Computed example of a mutant assay.
Amino acid sequence: MKINRHWLWAGLLPVMLVVGCGGSKEKEEEEKKDDESVSAIGAVGALKEMASKAEELQKNGPVETVDFRKLKELLPADADGLPRKEATGEKNGAAGMVISTANGKYSNDDGSESIELSIVDGGGSAMMIGLAAWSMVEIDKETDNGYEKTSTMGDNKSYEKYDNASKDGEINVLVNKRFIVSAKGHGVSMDKLKSVLEDLDLDKVGALK
């Protein structure tokens, strides 16, 4: 079965950006070659898994996406104490692939703390390969300023990134292989972002039809 090359490369690009390791200029040439070899192996492995996922999706076919109004109903009135300022939703599609999205924006009065919560339903289409490429790789990086890693939230694969200095962060969760729920924040802790997703009830999101 042939794989749709357009979606395959669309999914591969973020994977290569994630798994690629450039190394510092101060490293020895031999170490750089080793790093490049590891990156190449990781990229090839990710590509193979993506190709397998794409073939599986083409075989089973996507399902109809949930009406974005149902997704909007799941957006909480406040995000761990931050009141909701705006809630929007929409449905977009191309080439027979449709995505439903609901977004909620939350902040305190002076805007020093803000969170954007989104729920995306791709109906299990090949488009999800690109949107959740992080779900097919393992990431674990840490610096003096923050970290980036893949993990799990309950039974769901997750990706999180946080900057300690700016208190900017995000956490994305792939639910039931079709929904991507994410919380992006400014001026808030990662614990607060996780608390928002826990209050959202990911099991309820995954049960939507």
Rank of each mutant, 00 (worst) to 15 (best):
M1A: 15
W134M: 09
L75Q: 09
D168E: 13
S24C: 10
I180G: 10
I119A: 09
N108W: 03
S114D: 05
I119Y: 04
D203P: 01
G23H: 01
P14N: 00
A10T: 13
V19S: 13
V66R: 05
N103T: 15
K177L: 00
A94T: 12
S135H: 05
D110S: 08
S37Y: 06
A87I: 10
G81S: 05
H6D: 12
Y106E: 07
S189F: 05
W134L: 12
A132D: 08
D144S: 09
D80M: 11
D140H: 14
E29G: 11
D78T: 10
E55T: 12
Y162H: 02
M97I: 15
V181H: 13
G89Q: 09
N108P: 07
E26N: 01
G45C: 10
T152H: 03
S24H: 08
E138Y: 11
D34W: 00
L193A: 01
G20N: 12
L8W: 02
A79E: 00
N108D: 15
S158C: 12
I99V: 15
A43E: 13
A132L: 08
A132G: 07
K25T: 05
L47I: 06
L202A: 05
G187W: 03
D199Q: 15
L208P: 08
A77F: 12
G45S: 10
M190T: 02
N103P: 08
E170I: 13
E116D: 05
G45H: 02
K192M: 05
M127Q: 09
L193K: 02
M153N: 08
K27I: 03
M128T: 11
A207S: 14
L193I: 01
M50H: 10
A165I: 04
H6C: 06
I3F: 09
N156S: 14
M127P: 01
T65G: 05
K72F: 03
L202S: 06
D191E: 03
H186D: 00
D110A: 02
Y106K: 04
S189E: 10
V44N: 07
K105N: 09
A46I: 04
H186E: 08
T101L: 15
